[in-house]
Design a binder for these strands. Sequence first.
DNA 1: CGCTCTATCTAAACAGTGTTAAGATAGATA
DNA 2: TATCTATCTTAACACTGTTTAGATAGAGCG
Lengths: 216, 216
Amino acid sequence: MKKQASPAKRSTTRPKPAPGYHHGELQEALIAASEAILAEQGAEGFTLREAARRAGVSPAAPSHHFGNAPGLLTEVAIRGYDALADALREAASGKQGPRDKLHAQGLAYVEFALSHPGRFQMMFANKRLVADDARLRQASRAAGHAFEIVVAELVGSTPKQAKTAAAAAWSTVHGFAKLALEDKFGSVKTDGGRREIMMTLDQVLNYLWPVSGARR
Amino acid sequence: MKKQASPAKRSTTRPKPAPGYHHGELQEALIAASEAILAEQGAEGFTLREAARRAGVSPAAPSHHFGNAPGLLTEVAIRGYDALADALREAASGKQGPRDKLHAQGLAYVEFALSHPGRFQMMFANKRLVADDARLRQASRAAGHAFEIVVAELVGSTPKQAKTAAAAAWSTVHGFAKLALEDKFGSVKTDGGRREIMMTLDQVLNYLWPVSGARR
DNA sequence: CGCTCTATCTAAACAGTGTTAAGATAGATA
DNA sequence: TATCTATCTTAACACTGTTTAGATAGAGCG
């Protein structure tokens, strides 16, 4: 499957990236192109043909590697979930107590969403993905698991209780991110607005998951 | 484009299906058709042509009334927000204390989302709507306001604090609804799954906004 | 009543989409 | 060297939203 780029031997003036028929790294090129489109145009701006265009291949080429558009997007979403899980683990690792960890994860979650809106939205657009893909589900659960670990540390021992608390935490930050992206909290477009949004989130998190002992 | 509401004066009361050229109630028919599509196929399943087809008109007909697809969907979304606001007010009116009211509103919010997934998703799909439409923004704020009223009653007096608390409450239920719709909490398709989801939500709400004085 | 006026709708076309079938090509293999 | 197979292209199909020009019908007015 994988192959390496062969140096243009007797090259017939083929430029650089996609010489002739065998692209060589078309999968990666298509995924990268898709991520670029999502970053530039958002989730609604993605088209399979545009991804193929950017990769320098015909519109039919992607089908040989990903089957169809959801197939390609699923691969993109998987990488998105991996990146999200990394960000959540990273955020927690920088703090000590479970409350601080959860707080940091909440900030990291929304930061992730606002920094990569298109990819984030696509990750949660089941209808555009192969929703029952095993690897996708696994990647999604892994990201959720990063939450659960910290939450389990925070709340009591009961797994049931931890599950509920994790659902609560995830719901809050996910809802906040979604509402912010749909402009329900004021402009998130400007840098100033973005800053304000994150401050609001900080207050929300402090309100729901107070770090100090005092409650409200 | 914008029709003037000429109430049927003395005129020949147009029946309803209205074949031929002048449909008579095309706007309502298109909105109803759109809502039906959203109910049957979800937000991704909507197409302007299908809406026109169901209303029995040509694909170009909607443009005369709504300009374009986002224009029609905006009208649908406005009605959705109105219905949501009603549901939230209704839920609150059935309870006494602010905590019980907020709890009931949370349940009603998710109930609304799970009962009308397509419409709900469309309501928050800014890219498919005329996001800066004045009436849409007003309807959206009205729905949010239904939350704020109860929250203000619950928390202290500071408007700033109430704003934060309302954002927290809205984020939680919105995130829960979104995650449930994207199947992150287990099957929501079956009635049994639906029931289980709502029980989880109940626990989440009890966890974040405890009705009793005891905290966790 | 007849005439115009205007809102309403259709027909046709255009550019774009995802997907498929059949064929061309090139790298790997024997 | 000849064949094999993965890879990619070309061409087509059935869709989509939108625009333009034209047809129709109902309302208002003489």
